[in-house]
């Protein structure tokens, strides 16, 4: 079987509003990051792949099966939506048991898999904890457990770390890396750090279009020579922001270390030093290059 997700010229309209604009993309085995600001079209793209939305035009296939064959595709996909939860009065075990049943897993299979899954997502001691009593991080981990329960070829996670504290975020990223294995894992996020920590292949979306696809290294390479750093007094920061796209400001008592983007046609940069871009800088540069960061 062809282990890839392929989108050919996919567009999606909500009434007159275009959410996806002729998207062409191939996603292969491993962790794939889909980056873009809120409203860029990431969720729409995810929903098309998971069969929860139909494309207005174009073709989308998952491991060789067209998404129009929804039943077949759903069996291959594990999906963790952005705001996943389950019935509040169900325990972690019951929620997985119910969702496992909906995925077609037999009783014996569920009985064997669920404790292992809960252990994997570090919820073993919460077997009988009700969903309504779980923290946001615990629910996301429960969500990832249900997504991998039927051993799908493709796992799609939509904004999984939004709202989590740094420790939970780190734990979740590690979990995603662990489960990736021989699967296709698509991680949709607007948090650059998530991608940096987990994905090699990425795509960046803006206004329904794919504005970059490639590796993280390629994204970084594109930004080389465009990221500068300068130490200025605090009062000069605002002036600098007016002139350049500032990616980071690090306050140091009365001074500030400012990182900013220089485009090819920008003028001189004075005392600023060119620095090695990080992924966040590279992302900001890309967005800036493609019409400015909002």
């Amino acid at each position: 079987m062809d282990m890839k997700i392929e989108l050919k010229d996919v567009s999606k309209f909500y009434g007159r509003k275009q959410a996806l604009d002729h998207v062409n993309l191939e996603i292969h085995k491993g962790m794939f990051g889909l980056l873009g600001r809120n409203g860029a079209g990431k969720t729409t793209l995810m929903k098309i792949i998971t069969t929860l939305l139909g494309p207005s035009s174009g073709e989308c296939t998952v491991c060789g099966v067209n998404v129009r064959e929804a039943v077949k595709v759903r069996q291959m996909i594990g999906y963790l939506p952005q705001d996943f939860s389950m019935y509040g009065n169900m325990t972690a075990y019951e929620a997985l048991d119910y969702l496992g049943l909906l995925s077609g897993i037999h009783k014996q299979g569920r009985k064997e898999i669920i404790p292992d899954l809960l252990e994997k997502v570090n919820l073993k001691s919460n077997l009988r904890t009700k969903v309504k009593a779980m923290s946001g991080g615990m629910r996301r981990r429960l969500g990832i457990a249900q997504a991998i329960m039927h051993n799908p070829k493709v796992i799609i996670v939509d904004e999984p770390t939004a709202g989590l504290d740094p420790e939970e975020r780190m734990r979740f990223r590690n979990l995603l890396t662990e489960i990736a294995g021989e699967r296709i894992v698509i991680l949709s996020t607007h948090i650059v750090g998530d991608i940096e920590a987990t994905c090699e292949q990425i795509a960046v979306m803006d206004q329904g279009r794919i504005i970059f696809k490639g590796t993280v290294s390629q994204l970084l390479e594109d930004a080389i020579g465009h990221i500068y750093e300068i130490k200025v007094s605090r009062i000069e920061v605002e002036e600098l922001k007016k002139q350049y796209e500032v990616t980071n400001v690090f306050m140091q008592s009365s001074e500030a270390m400012v990182r900013f983007i220089i485009k090819d046609n920008d003028g001189g940069v004075g005392a600023a030093k060119m620095v090695q871009p990080n992924v966040e800088d590279a992302y900001m540069y890309l967005m800036h290059k493609n019409g400015g960061v909002k």
């Binding site: 998971t50 069969t51 929860l52 039943v71 759903r74 069996q75 996909i77 999906y79 963790l80 939506p81 705001d83 996943f84 939860s85 389950m86 019935y87 509040g88 969702l99 049943l101 909906l102 995925s103 077609g104 969500g143 249900q146 039927h150």
Partner: peptide, 18 residues
């Protein structure tokens, strides 16, 4: 209405059962 209220709608939609 329970699925939507519990925010379980999307995940149940994505499951294999008809």
């Amino acid at each position: 209405l329970k699925d939507r209220r519990a925010k379980a709608e999307q995940v149940i939609y994505s499951k294999g059962r008809s």
